[in-house]
């Protein structure tokens, strides 16, 4: 097999360089079409590029603000904090210190869970935040998720989870691996209780999150052109050393291979969730 070196500009996967998607300031450049955009315009357009409809990554709060009926979000497990079970020492910086600074920046963990209303329908909503340590799943993410599921069972509500994650949180070792089985086991119970689980995959959803709850939705929908997979493209490239096909591991690729039910652009997400709950949620 020929080994083709991928030039940096063509490289479509995770970049090691900071991706300046939302720089401070009035103007920002769309990473897809390179158009200079007025920040406010993008924000008013649900953080979607008006020219090429590139979907910018969202933090958890913004995501929830876009989806729920105003002021209806009531958070669950907001006081949970990770400890450092392994006392992970890396590059001179302790994991607990990194947690602290990430907390200070984001104000919550890599997932926000709560009860909310979407177009008048009561749901348990969870939104992941990729800006918090790569949206990685540690024990707090697992615990909050399971509390959300418990609450959904208790109140017979549908569960909507918006995923955006790099996978299991390496710094918590096997504890974070255990969260994969923990969330999946909780969903097994939810399934037996007859609950409706709607999984929404956004850019990027990979690793341990895809390999656990994200792929277990009764219905799975994806945002356009989101990176979704088990191994990241960089890992795959390093393993097999051949160029990855165009659009590999993107939403459209998953749709073609039968792993998502539909692709829904952000502007329609709210109404689609409402519609699907009408079909599948409990009356």
């Amino acid at each position: 097999m020929t080994t083709t070196k991928i030039s940096k500009s063509k490289w479509d996967g995770f970049s090691l360089k900071p991706r300046r998607e939302m720089p401070e300031g009035l103007w920002l450049a769309c990473p897809s079409c390179r158009e200079m955009l007025f920040r406010k315009t993008v924000e008013d357009n649900l953080h979607v590029c008006p020219k090429c409809s590139h979907h910018f990554r969202l933090d958890g709060r913004t995501r929830i603000r876009q989806l729920v009926d105003e002021g209806s979000f009531e958070e669950i497990g907001a006081d949970l904090r990770s400890t450092d079970p392994l006392r992970f020492a890396s590059s001179g910086q302790q994991y607990c210190e990194r947690l602290k600074s990430a907390h200070a920046k984001a104000g919550s963990e890599a997932i926000l869970v709560g009860k909310a209303f979407i177009r008048g329908r009561g749901v348990i909503l969870a939104a992941m935040d990729f800006s918090f340590l790569g949206g990685s799943m540690g024990m707090v993410v697992g615990e909050k998720f399971c509390r959300g599921v418990d609450r959904a069972i208790e109140e017979s509500l549908p569960l909507v989870v918006i995923s955006a994650s790099g996978g299991a949180r390496m710094h918590e070792g096997v504890v974070s691996l255990g969260q994969m089985s923990k969330t999946s086991a909780a969903l097994a119970r939810f399934d037996e209780a007859g609950g409706f689980f709607l999984s929404v995959l956004t850019d990027p959803t990979t690793g341990g999150v895809t390999a656990s709850f994200a792929m277990l939705g009764d219905i799975i929908i994806a945002e356009p052109n989101a990176l979704i997979g088990f191994a990241g493209p960089r890992t795959i490239y390093q393993t097999i050393k051949i160029e990855l096909p165009e659009g590999f591991q993107r939403s459209e690729f998953l749709l073609e291979h039968g792993f998502v039910d539909m692709i829904v652009p952000r502007k329609d997400l709210r109404s689609e969730i409402g519609r699907l709950i009408d079909y599948c949620g409990k009356p």
Partner: peptide, 20 residues
Amino acid sequence: IVPDTPEELETLEEESPQPV
């Protein structure tokens, strides 16, 4: 655990997603 002052941005290399 929640500190008073936000600390320096971490290097983004470490934040890039890690496949399991």
